[in-house]
Amino acid sequence: MIRRFGESPEPGRKYIRRAGVYALLPLSGSLLLTCQTEPGPDLQLPGGGIDPGESPLPALHREVYEETGWQIASPRRVGAFRRFVYMPEYDLWAEKICLIYCARPVRRLGPPTDAIHEPVWLGADEAAQMLGNAGDRHFARHYFMGTL
């Protein structure tokens, strides 16, 4: 069973299951995050949905690059969680299955290719408090506590 963070599913509402990959990207005591600027500012672990026919690791590399402009190395899965949310960019209610990885940011290749994302570096404590959803905060906190 995968731990749930956030709101319980609403009875009678249809949710589309959407698997995604997200990364803890530590470097020199900070985390590389992304701020999604639309529909409103939201600080997130970089990542996103796994496309049909795509495997999790290629999706992770693609999503991190699209949202931060960085290349990553040595990803390892550290956990998973789910949450039930409305996704306005897709106009759908989703049961998001969030696969969490830890990877090393190795090189900035350029700006994010996704125009609504901006890379942000935050210290451990600040990131664990400011990330926009409870699941991301949980994994950031446990990473820096050394309990992952």
Results as ranks from 00 to 15, higher is better:
residue 82 R to T: 10
residue 108 R to I: 15
residue 36 Q to L: 13
residue 135 G to M: 05
residue 48 G to H: 04
residue 76 R to T: 09
residue 64 V to F: 02
residue 124 A to P: 11
residue 36 Q to V: 14
residue 111 P to D: 08
residue 21 V to R: 01
residue 117 H to E: 13
residue 31 L to H: 03
residue 46 P to A: 06
residue 38 E to F: 13
residue 119 P to R: 09
residue 101 Y to V: 03
residue 18 R to G: 07
residue 140 A to C: 05
residue 5 F to H: 06
residue 65 Y to V: 09
residue 20 G to I: 05
residue 102 C to V: 10
residue 47 G to V: 10
residue 102 C to K: 10
residue 126 E to F: 09
residue 100 I to R: 01
residue 31 L to W: 03
residue 103 A to G: 04
residue 107 R to K: 06
residue 110 G to K: 07
residue 81 F to Q: 03
residue 102 C to N: 09
residue 13 R to L: 09
residue 141 R to E: 02
residue 67 E to I: 00
residue 46 P to W: 02
residue 78 V to S: 01
residue 68 T to F: 01
residue 145 M to A: 13
residue 37 T to D: 07
residue 74 S to T: 11
residue 6 G to H: 15
residue 58 P to E: 07
residue 84 F to R: 05
residue 126 E to W: 08
residue 110 G to M: 09
residue 103 A to Q: 02
residue 91 D to L: 12
residue 108 R to D: 05
residue 83 R to K: 14
residue 53 G to C: 02
residue 40 G to M: 12
residue 51 D to S: 15
residue 64 V to M: 03
residue 6 G to L: 05
residue 33 L to N: 02
residue 109 L to S: 05
residue 49 G to M: 12
residue 32 L to P: 00
residue 126 E to C: 11
residue 95 E to G: 01
residue 36 Q to A: 15
residue 125 D to T: 15
residue 119 P to G: 12
residue 67 E to R: 01
residue 133 N to K: 08
residue 29 G to V: 06
residue 6 G to N: 10
residue 130 M to P: 09
residue 57 L to G: 04
residue 127 A to S: 07
residue 103 A to P: 02
residue 44 Q to D: 13
residue 59 A to H: 04
residue 117 H to Q: 09
residue 51 D to H: 07
residue 57 L to T: 07
residue 90 Y to C: 13
residue 54 E to C: 05
residue 36 Q to C: 10
residue 88 P to V: 14
residue 48 G to N: 06
